[in-house]
Design a binder for these strands. Structure first.
Lengths: 200, 200
DNA sequence: AAAATAAAATACTAAGTAGTATGTTTTTGT
DNA sequence: ACAAAAACATACTACTTAGTATTTTATTTT
């Protein structure tokens, strides 16, 4: 069983270095050579574990990126407490928590979406899965809020969920253009204004 | 003066084909060779008119992409009429007007932002210029609305402008993941809900 | 019409690309 | 301890990349 563990460890190493490099330099412009140089292994090791760069890309999406979005934006939505407050703290808190590096490089998922989603259906599907889970969590929370009378019953949970996600992903891109947090502060203000109107 | 015209025409041809290819396949993965094959000219012609691919990229941003955003999203904001209605028709109308191709490939500006804005300051500056103009137009319209009592004086024009832009750019990316317009319809609903709250 | 200049073509370089073929080393089951 | 298999290394292929050097063709200026 030691060999299997070692194999898993190597795959994880490749996955980690890939994610870092894809995030920093983009998927298409990060070569397999560069990745393997980062792992201090060789190309032979790579093609022993992965059949292609595409397969690696899909695995980075379905593990690393998925986990990042889950931990940061989805799991928190299933906490207890006032629905509206939960939305505010999750979105606002998350964006405030980003490091400078993360602000400068945007959202890893959004980068993937905009770089390669229109090129291969497989990427599209893998990324859509994450968005759908995020959307479902938001809808679930909004519906709970409606039941508990903390959210206006007349609004469309679907529409609000999509609008929240869009604005969040959008600002992660826009922020790349600036050298300060003004746009993020504006976003946070815009968000809280938006959420206020969801009150009953 | 005929030579100068011919030169201009060639540059425009290169610019047009570049824009199309960058939009379809991304900036970094579109080679100069591919572009010149599309123009039916040769590499010699390219490097006679542009000193590098980077220079071309910057010119595509400051001409083609800028014009696209101006025509579609900025100029319409300076029309007469109720400010809130103008916002609704501009945003909602624009997104409804996109061809299937444009929906599948997202926003050319947003693609550039997410693909290369964090790599070169020059790209950052060129793209930021467009966003700033867009933001200024929105703020101007919102302030006019406040004066004319069609928009709530208590809201921050800055924050609303950024939130509108973020959500719009965000949805252009998200739409790439889907094969139908459901998310766009949700976005439009979310937008109109958002705009409603701007009323005095 | 000749000289000068601009536009474009041809042929190249040096470096990078994904992926393969064939080794060697390490681990595992017997 | 030994054969089999898994993990990894080395060396390669065929192709693409941005950019350059040099030449040919078209246009303008004198």
């Amino acid at each position: 069983m030691e060999q299997k563990q070692k194999s898993e460890l190597t795959k994880e190493l490749i996955l980690n270095e890939s994610f870092k490099l894809f995030y920093k330099e983009g998927f298409k412009t990060t070569s397999v050579d560069k990745i393997m140089k980062a792992t201090k292994l060789t190309k032979g090791a790579f093609y022993h574990h992965y059949k292609s760069k595409k397969e690696l890309g899909l695995e980075v999406i379905s593990t690393k990126i998925q986990k990042r979005v889950y931990d940061g934006m989805i799991t928190p939505l299933y906490q207890d407490g006032n629905a509206l407050k939960l939305l505010e703290t999750t979105f606002s808190g998350r964006i405030k928590s980003f490091s400078l590096y993360d602000k400068q490089h945007g959202c890893p998922m959004n980068n993937f979406i905009n770089e390669i989603a229109d090129e291969e259906e497989a990427y599209q599907i893998a990324l859509k899965r994450i968005i759908e889970e995020w959307k479902a969590a938001l809808i679930h929370l909004l519906e709970r809020g409606k039941l508990e009378n903390s959210i206006n019953k007349d609004i469309s949970s679907n529409a609000v969920a999509i609008y929240l996600i869009s604005a969040f992903e959008g600002i992660r891109g826009i922020r790349k253009l600036y050298n300060d947090d003004q746009v993020i502060d504006d976003y946070i203000l815009g968000l809280s204004l938006y959420l206020k109107q969801l009150e009953p």
